[in-house]
Design a protein around this nucleic acid. Structure first.
Length: 856
RNA sequence: GCUCGAGUGGCGGAAUGGUAGACGCUGAGGACUUAAAAUCCUUUGCCCGUAAGGGCGUGCGGGUUCGACUCCCGCCUCGAGCACCA
């Protein structure tokens, strides 16, 4: 039963149903069902100290509508929620207050859970996951070790992005326009030893998989662009009077005869080797100068190119010409071979450079209309020896074939995608479960009979060298997982790229027993300890926040399972989310990383699907009432708690969906929510009489109500399936307005209307249904109303146009032909006056819609 | 610069080749009330007109069509993404 309230007391109603749903475990789901499954996933939130933002419930409400609709359609629906709880803010809070991140995080989660629960979502809360829970992250660590075992994790010391403000390294994906994605702080290149994941090995799979998913085109495009696959030719140029040669990569081998110089990136190691004595000083100065430039400066100054001549020349393999070799920072060291052949007539960057430094510009391609000096398109070859007259496409192949015959070239594929920088100098993240050993110890151990740490041992050792000593990585085994974080005194990272964990001596320095697998802190070790013990040092970097979110959707399938990341039968049943709703800001970060991990898990047989997210939808952003982004400093932030207090969760849910298309950016309006609140009140007083008793509805409604209800069933069903909730709500408003005007609906109709409303505003729907029906069941489980597309009206209204202008409307039989309609039109004085004295030339009739009469 | 997406009343938006502005908000007028709130009714794209009525109208300019917010061509503006990737 529902409440006894007389007026629309949303607070009482909503609280009542929250308690009842929780008590009855209404939305609990199990795998033991013979129903078809449907899995709806929200991007789980980071539980920040600021509490829930008004934008969160937009996506969550959308997924809840889908969930409740699918339940009513007879599916067994999984709709879980959890917490992406590792991350910087908790750590910064800890640095400021000294409160452990774990405690702060737990508090924030409690607040978030309570706030999310106040919306009455049909979530199975018994499946909640938390990425910082050791029973969760033991599997994050397990996946990492699998990657390591399969040669997809390695350490490397290369220039990487360092943010001195965040005191951490960042992945390529986390650097946007030369500043950090989080906070917008400047970043610089720094050489640091880091863990990398070979996502590049999955580049082609990540590209191909996009063909099989139902995702927004823009998101797919972003991923394609980020992977940046290009096919071309690698060409070797011999350096004149020198033993070295230079390799360049080009997608335009057809322009080879137009190459008038080569350019090396300043970091290219050949620059200092081939330089002539006269140019040595100038080159050294230039290289030094570019080093001091930040990457932002290097790209910002794109318009004004700089460079220096090396004094050396290379030989064009196809025609033997001498080409001057330059060094310029418009060539990127990290892409291709770090060197290019410059064809100024057919590349705008080379063109700018050549013009500035007075280098020859030679045309070898003619376009349709190529009077211009610079032409970057494809066309017909000129001045290209035996290839003159070829088309670009044909020439690309032929010239590459010739280079291959000359042993000066090969076909090559390049990607913009770089390997994923996976370590962070942070405390609040998953510890990387690896112990470092000196190489002699490592070599000795791994060949021992009964060596314990074999489970994830990679085929090729992972090592690095520091101060003349080489260290190798020993992966922990499943038994040592989870490797939990030690308590530390300071969470402050250091300026030199060392994690706060490095200072936890008791945790970092260990002795391991290679046979028994025992690991003891070095401080507890003494010479008398029996057995074979080898000194090691734990890895002190932690994983990035993306790690935990790469596989959480799998954990929901069997959240308490203890012997695998996901229980086999649960995974076979739920497979993967059918619908994934979340913000577009994760288009390349989370969504690319998660796809990579999922494909890897598929390859090792841990999951049975090759793509994690079948269908993806991005909800838009809710702006402040002033039309700008909500922010504390602008003072335009809307607090969901306050809105719920004033209007209730049903009103807030309904309003966020009514605002506009789900994917659109749209401003909040306080007036607007009054409108949907009024709608809810009108519903209440349509069902509940002044004395608080539910009204008695008869057995039959009028023709009009039955028509409008049927229209509404059709429209709402279709709109939910297409995620067009705003127009679904409009139609329900039209339906209610008709009900109120007609005053006669049947009990059956009164229940069907509530069923349509229930996914959007579940509390009021459940309350009114329980009063109407008196049964104990939830409205959520009634079968979804069926739409009867019957032709109910024999007479229809059609518009009458004369020469394309609407001149009136008339009622005709829905099957009326030209003559019948014309007869009606002639009888209508208002319309027929336009026909007086005119000759009818042509009549176009669109049955049941419009008639257009052309006259002269 | 390149690649997408979008431009409709005072506002959020609806209509994807067939009566533009559904639905909601706002504004105006009215009913109820001692009064206010709440609620209900009428009205609300712009211009001319007391009215009947007429004209204009979906960023701008062309085109296709009996008919265009919708399709095609060329511009303008805004938003998003990428940005020396050879």
């Amino acid at each position: 039963m529902g409440t006894n309230c007389i007026a629309y007391d949303f607070e009482a109603v909503e609280q009542h149903w929250h308690e009842k749903w929780a008590k009855d475990r209404t939305f609990r789901v199990t795998e033991n069902s013979n129903k078809e499954k449907y899995y709806v996933l929200d991007m789980f939130p980071y539980p920040s100290s600021a509490g829930l933002h008004i934008g969160h419930p937009e996506g969550y409400t959308a997924s809840d509508i889908i969930t409740r609709h699918k339940i009513a359609c007879g599916y067994n629906v999984l709709h879980p929620m959890g917490w992406d709880a590792f991350g910087l803010p908790a750590e910064q809070h800890a640095i400021k207050t000294g409160v452990q991140p774990a405690i702060n995080t737990a508090n924030n989660i409690d607040i978030f859970r309570k706030q999310i629960q106040s919306f009455g979502f049909a979530i199975d809360w018994e499946r909640e996951v938390n990425t910082t829970d050791p029973n969760y992250f033991r599997w994050t660590q397990w996946i990492f070790l699998q990657l390591l075992k399969h040669g997809l994790a390695y350490v490397d010391e290369k220039p990487i992005w360092w943010c001195s403000e965040l005191k951490s390294v960042l992945a390529n994906e986390e650097v946007i326009n030369g500043v950090s994605e989080r906070g917008g702080y400047p970043v610089e290149r720094k050489n640091l030893r880091q863990w990398m994941l070979k996502i590049t090995k999955y580049a082609d799979k990540l590209l191909d998989g996009l063909k099989d998913v139902d995702w927004p085109e823009s998101t797919k495009r972003q991923q394609v662009a980020w992977i940046g696959k290009s096919t071309g030719t690698q060409i070797t140029f011999k350096v004149e009077n020198h033993s070295s040669s230079i390799m360049v990569y080009t997608t335009r081998p057809d322009t080879l005869y137009g190459a008038t110089f080569l350019v090396l990136a300043p970091e290219h190691n050949l620059g200092s080797t081939i330089v002539s004595d006269e140019q040595r000083a100038a080159v050294a100065a230039y290289v030094e100068q570019t080093k001091s430039k930040s990457d932002l400066e290097r790209t910002d100054l794109a318009k004004n190119k700089t460079g220096v001549f090396t004094g050396a020349y290379a030989i064009n393999p196809v025609n033997g010409e001498s080409l001057p070799i330059w060094i310029a920072d418009y060539v990127l060291y990290s892409y291709g071979t770090g060197a290019i052949m410059a064809v100024p007539a057919h590349d705008d960057r080379d063109y700018e450079f050549a013009k500035k430094y007075g280098i020859e510009i030679r045309q070898v391609i003619h376009g349709e209309d190529s009077s211009e000096l610079l032409f970057c398109g494809e066309g017909k070859l000129v001045n290209s020896g035996e290839f003159t007259g070829f088309g670009s496409q044909q020439a690309k192949e032929a010239i590459t074939d010739k280079l291959i015959r000359l042993k000066s070239g090969l076909r090559a594929i390049n990607y913009k995608l770089r390997d994923w920088l996976f370590s962070r100098q942070r405390y609040w993240g998953e510890p990387i479960p690896v112990v470092w050993m000196e190489k002699p110890d490592y070599d000795f151990m791994v060949q021992l009979n009964g060596f314990y740490f074999k489970e994830f041992l990679p085929k090729e050792e992972i090592s690095y060298t520091s101060n003349g000593l080489t260290f190798c990585a020993i992966p922990l085994t499943s038994k040592e997982l989870p490797l939990v974080l030690p308590k530390v005194e300071s969470y402050m990272p250091s300026d030199n790229g060392e994690s706060p964990l490095a200072k936890a001596n008791h945790w970092v320095n260990v002795y391991i027993n290679p046979i028994s697998g025992e690991i003891i802190p070095a401080c507890e070790f003494n010479a008398g300890t029996a057995g074979m013990w080898i000194r090691g040092r734990r890895e002190t970097n932690t994983m990035p926040q993306w790690a935990g979110s790469c596989w959480y959707y799998l954990r929901y399938m069997s959240p308490r399972h203890s012997s695998a990341l996901v229980e086999e039968n649960s995974e076979k049943y739920w497979q993967r989310p059918d619908m994934y709703i979340g913000g577009a800001e994760h288009a390349v970060l989370h969504l690319l990383y998660a796809r990579f991990w999922h494909k890897f898990l598929y390859d090792i047989g841990a999951v049975s699907t090759s793509e994690p997210f079948k269908k993806l939808f991005h909800q838009g952003i809710i702006l402040g009432e002033d039309g700008s982004k909500m922010s504390k400093s602008r003072g335009n932030v809307v607090n969901p708690d306050e809105v719920i207090k004033q209007y209730g969760a049903d009103a807030l849910r309904l309003y966020e969906m009514f605002l506009g298309p789900l994917e659109a950016m749209k401003p909040w309006s306080t007036r607007g929510i009054e409108g949907v609140f009024r709608f809810l009140k009108r519903i209440w007083y349509f069902y509940i009489a002044d004395d608080g008793k539910v009204k008695i509805f008869g057995n039959e409604g009028s023709q009009e109500t039955s028509n409008v209800l049927d229209d509404t069933i059709g429209k709402v069903t279709q709109d939910i399936e297409n995620l067009r909730f705003n127009t679904a709500i409009s139609q329900m408003m039209i339906c209610l307005n008709t009900f109120i005007k007609e005053e006669s609906i049947s009990k059956e109709q009164s229940i069907k209307f509530l069923q349509l409303l229930a996914p959007f505003a579940p509390h009021i729907a459940e309350e009114l249904y329980s009063r109407l029906d008196g049964s104990v069941g939830s409205i959520s489980f009634l079968p979804w109303p069926k739409y009867c597309a019957r032709d109910r009206r024999s007479e229809v209204k059609i518009a009458v146009q004369i020469n394309g202008k609407v001149r009136g409307e008339c009622f005709v039989d829905k099957n009326a032909e030209h003559d019948q309609v014309m007869e009606v039109v002639r009888k209508n004085d208002k319309i027929s006056k336009f026909l007086l004295g005119k000759t009818i030339e042509k009549v176009i009739l669109v049955p049941a819609k419009i008639i257009n009469i052309l006259v002269k």
